[in-house]
Design a protein around this nucleic acid. Structure first.
Length: 677
DNA sequence: CTTGCAATGACTGAT
DNA sequence: TCATTGCAAG
């Protein structure tokens, strides 16, 4: 039992040589992947403003999730055409180089764990045969969140016995951004014609109010499989809606509300969850909870294993276990500082590319691979190599904890952090100690007469999350997490916070119906986490990038059938009779009818305090109001371009194609476009 | 090669 | 706001 990634990482380790990888292959996390892509983009002399590493990564990731190799990517006219249209014609080169470099480094990224599993099962029938008979029965949970790559693995493994059961709910599909494909549920019928379907329409978790409210929201989606979810539970309380002026106030009000509910209902902290759209929202709630002395735990966010100091030490571990690991080498070769700077590392990379070997080969065998690295730097480098090699001698002799301590000490990391007496430095030092303690525990927990080696510990540390290393599980705390992380969980009292346009739904999702519908499903997931009481909150202004921005309530609040809502409003009092279009008025937010404000595109930020009211209306009406699709325009930064799309009447936003940079969405209010013809 | 300061840009989401 | 990058000086 495990996630796809962890199960197949283990299987890949058993057979890695068959596909040309070392047993000790490294798993690159997203940070590693992006960092490598950044280096490659620089090497190819491409502009990382156009070839943004995260964008490139997303593109490669979705290719892999659809089992498109770099060679197939290059040969695929449609894909290459798309890249050319978006002014990124050399993406396939980046993909090819990236694939090669990962292979040279003995590293797989997250997507490779599935991609290479498919290759292993495709090219090695004996391996496939073995696992087909090892796993006679297969159960896949949250099937709506599987992607094509995962789908194919399951299909292959189940091909002999066809003992397969999948559980999924299309209304809870919230991972399409990582390639999840709802089609997999539909394909199931074709792949296994003898299938039996069991509809689970009774909800045993939530009150009638919550179930019906959630239904009233999800029915706004066009893409859905029709079903009637119902419950025989109590009607329960109405869903509370809280409005506050600022994000900090939101934290306080929600915390107070939790405090009171705890008193009134004799509830535990564990009965409460605060759910938000983005990790960055946790801060206001942390502060408020700490002031009220309410224990809480934040899941996700910068997890333990993603912190810099932890990644640094793990970088040493990785390098010792697998010296060809390029990202690990780059991370630690000059940390702590030992006088090996960027230019020296660059020379190493150039030499490695020139000889077609790993970075480690260059620095560990300078005689075989002469370089132009100055002798001073080379001396420092060989000192580093000697240190790593001395660790490697020990690798299979002593256990993980002994090894880890030796590395932490001799590398200088421990001293470096110990000397830093700032609060952050102290906390980093403690984190390192916590990691070492965790490794100690690991070595003590392997079976008798066995030794837990460092590479055993390392083998799937990249796949660990906070939830895995849960130690104080029995402690009574309030739970803070993103909605994504909350899927599958349940709490008596749930607070869904930050229900504001541009935040939830995210501004990234406003441009297309499928994306907006995924946000709506996310909201559906959030609501249905609640057993007894769901509370929604939003703030009319919040800090973003250090500026205060104004925000308006999320459309999702209105989409709940008004009979299920209890809108806390000091001025008007809660009313049942008002229909949902009156919500804005009920809340007392605006004098204007809803639909006209909705049509005005939201300003992304409005930092000019003198100008708050007029900002939405003062669209330069004179020259740009008659802008039409097809016009040639000029932008001060992007140069000449052609208008390919417009939104609003009069136009507020334009999509403009610039030959240099591709399509850009511009707010006319800011863009200062000049009409050429 | 490192350091310090100014400028810049990022906040979806997670294996 | 916070972390990273670019640039000039030491």
């Amino acid at each position: 039992m495990g996630t796809f990634h962890s199960v197949f990482a283990k299987i890949l380790r058993n057979h890695s040589q068959k596909i040309g990888y070392p047993t000790n292959f490294t798993i690159y996390d997203s940070q590693d992947s992006k960092s490598l892509l950044k280096t490659i983009i620089k090497e190819l002399n491409l502009d990382d403003k156009i070839y943004k590493p995260s964008l490139v990564h997303g593109r490669i990731s979705s290719a892999k999730n659809n089992l498109i190799s770099a060679a197939e990517y290059e040969a695929n006219a449609e894909i290459v055409g798309e890249d050319r249209m978006s002014a990124k014609p050399r993406l396939f080169e980046i993909y090819k180089t990236y694939e090669k470099r990962c292979f040279m480094a003995g590293a797989m990224d997250f997507d490779d764990l599935l991609f290479k599993t498919n290759i292993l099962l495709r090219d090695h029938p004996e391996v496939l045969h073995y696992y087909q008979h090892k796993f006679k029965y297969i159960l896949v949970d949250e099937y709506q969140d599987t992607n094509y790559s995962q789908y194919l693995i399951v299909k292959k493994l189940a091909a002999v016995f066809t003992n397969i059961c999948v559980v999924g709910d299309d209304a809870q599909s919230i991972y399409s951004f990582r390639g999840a494909n709802i089609e997999n549920i539909l394909n199931f019928k074709n792949d296994y014609p003898d299938y039996k379907i069991f509809k689970l329409e009774q909800n045993y978790r939530s009150t009638q109010t919550i179930v019906n409210a959630a239904n009233s929201v999800i029915e706004k989606n066009q893409d859905q499989i029709q079903k009637t979810v119902w419950t025989s539970n109590d009607v329960g309380q109405k869903i509370k809606v809280i409005r506050t002026l600022t994000d900090n106030e939101e934290g306080k009000v929600v915390t107070n509300h939790i405090y009171e509910t705890k008193q009134n209902e004799q509830a535990n902290n564990l009965d409460f969850a605060i759910l938000y759209r983005t990790n960055a929202q946790s801060r206001a709630f942390e502060e408020a909870l700490r002031k009220m002395n309410l224990p809480y735990k934040i899941y996700g966010g910068l997890s333990f294993y993603q912190r810099k100091e932890i990644k640094d030490l793990l970088g040493y571990f990785r390098l010792v276990a697998n010296p060809t690991d390029e990202e690990a080498l780059k991370r630690v070769i000059n940390y702590p500082k030992r006088g090996i700077g960027d230019s020296s590392i660059e020379r190493v990379i150039i030499a490695a590319n020139h000889y077609g070997v790993s970075l480690w080969d260059i620095i560990s065998r300078p005689r075989d691979y002469p370089t132009d690295i100055p002798s001073g730097a080379m001396n420092k480098i060989s000192g580093f190599v000697t240190m790593i090699e001395s660790f490697r001698v020990q690798l299979n002799k002593v256990d993980a904890h002994e090894m880890a301590q030796a590395i932490a000490r001799s590398s200088g990391i421990l001293k470096e952090l110990y000397d830093d007496k700032s609060p952050e430095g102290v906390s980093r030092y403690e984190n390192i100690q916590a990691l070492l303690a965790g490794i100690k525990e690991f070595t003590e927990n392997v079976g008798e007469d066995e030794i837990g080696y460092l590479h055993d510990f390392l083998s799937d540390v990249a796949l660990l999350t906070d939830a895995d290393q849960e130690k104080d599980e029995n402690k009574d705390h309030i739970t803070l997490m993103t909605i994504h992380a909350s899927k599958g969980l349940e709490f008596p009292y749930v607070y869904v916070v930050g229900l504001e346009e541009n935040l939830f739904p995210s501004q990234m999702a406003l441009h297309s119906r499928p994306e907006l519908e995924e946000e709506r499903r996310l909201f559906y997931v959030a609501l249905t986490r609640a057993e007894k009481l769901a509370t929604l909150s939003y703030a009319t202004s919040r800090y973003r990038y250090g500026n205060i921005i104004t925000s308006e309530p999320s459309r999702f609040i209105e989409e709940i059938n008004a009979e299920f809502l209890d809108i806390a409003n000091p001025s008007r009092g809660a009313g049942v009779s008002m229909n949902q279009f009156n919500l804005e008025r009920k809340i007392g937010r605006t004098k204007e009818p809803l639909f006209t404000t909705r049509r005005n595109l939201k300003k992304i930020e409005d930092s000019d305090p003198t100008n708050e009211q007029s900002a939405t209306t003062e669209i330069n009406p004179s020259d740009l109001s008659d802008l039409k699709v097809g016009y040639n325009v000029k932008h001060e930064r992007f140069g000449k371009g052609k208008v390919v799309g417009l939104e609003g009447t009069p136009p507020i936003k334009a999509t403009v194609f610039f030959p240099q940079v591709g399509n850009k969405q511009l707010l006319l209010k800011f863009a200062k476009l000049e009409i050429l013809s």
